[in-house]
Amino acid sequence: MQATPEGGRKGRRTVALIAGAAVLGVVAGTCAGYLVQADREPTALPPLSQPSLAQAKGAGPEPLSAAQDRKVKVDGDLRKLLLKKPGGARKGLVEEGEDGWMDLGEYAETYKSPAGAFRNLAADNEFRRAAVTDWREGSTYSVEIRLVQFRQEEKGAEAADEASDGYYYAQPSDDYDTESWPIPGTGDGMAYVHPKPDTSYGVSLYSAEAHAWRGDIEMQVWIYDTKPIPKAKVLDLAKRQMEQL
Results as ranks from 00 to 15, higher is better:
52 S>W: 06
219 M>W: 03
155 K>P: 00
130 A>D: 07
136 R>M: 05
167 Y>F: 15
114 P>V: 07
197 P>R: 05
178 T>K: 04
18 I>H: 08
89 A>T: 04
216 D>E: 11
5 P>H: 02
93 L>N: 09
210 A>G: 11
52 S>L: 14
221 V>H: 13
96 E>C: 02
30 T>R: 15
104 L>G: 07
165 D>C: 08
59 A>Y: 06
7 G>L: 04
62 E>C: 02
123 A>D: 15
104 L>F: 11
182 P>D: 15
231 K>E: 15
193 V>A: 05
118 F>M: 11
107 Y>D: 03
50 Q>E: 14
16 A>P: 00
180 S>C: 01
226 T>H: 09
210 A>N: 09
242 M>L: 13
235 L>K: 10
212 A>K: 04
6 E>Y: 13
235 L>S: 03
144 E>G: 12
155 K>T: 03
103 D>M: 05
48 L>I: 04
205 L>G: 06
24 L>G: 14
198 D>N: 15
109 E>S: 15
124 D>H: 13
72 V>E: 10
33 G>W: 08
215 G>K: 12
187 G>Q: 12
212 A>V: 05
149 Q>A: 08
51 P>A: 14
29 G>A: 15
1 M>Y: 04
4 T>Y: 13
96 E>M: 07
185 G>H: 05
58 G>I: 01
227 K>Q: 03
64 L>N: 01
214 R>Y: 01
111 Y>T: 01
119 R>E: 14
186 T>K: 06
144 E>L: 10
49 S>L: 12
184 P>V: 06
200 S>P: 02
212 A>S: 14
37 Q>E: 08
239 K>N: 03
114 P>S: 11
88 G>V: 03
152 Q>G: 05
92 G>W: 01
202 G>V: 08
170 A>V: 04
225 D>P: 05
37 Q>D: 10
223 I>Q: 11
224 Y>T: 03
233 K>S: 11
238 A>T: 03
12 R>E: 07
90 R>H: 04
21 A>T: 13
49 S>E: 14
94 V>N: 10
168 Y>I: 06
63 P>S: 02
34 Y>H: 10
16 A>S: 13
213 W>V: 04
203 V>D: 11
115 A>W: 03
12 R>K: 10
138 G>H: 02
149 Q>L: 02
151 R>V: 02
96 E>F: 13
121 L>N: 07
12 R>C: 01
242 M>K: 04
197 P>L: 07
200 S>D: 10
100 G>F: 06
232 A>M: 07
223 I>D: 00
165 D>I: 00
238 A>F: 05
125 N>T: 00
133 T>G: 12
130 A>I: 02
13 R>D: 06
97 G>Q: 09
99 D>V: 01
222 W>Y: 14
37 Q>M: 06
57 K>H: 06
81 L>F: 05
187 G>N: 12
63 P>W: 02
119 R>M: 08
105 G>F: 06
135 W>G: 07
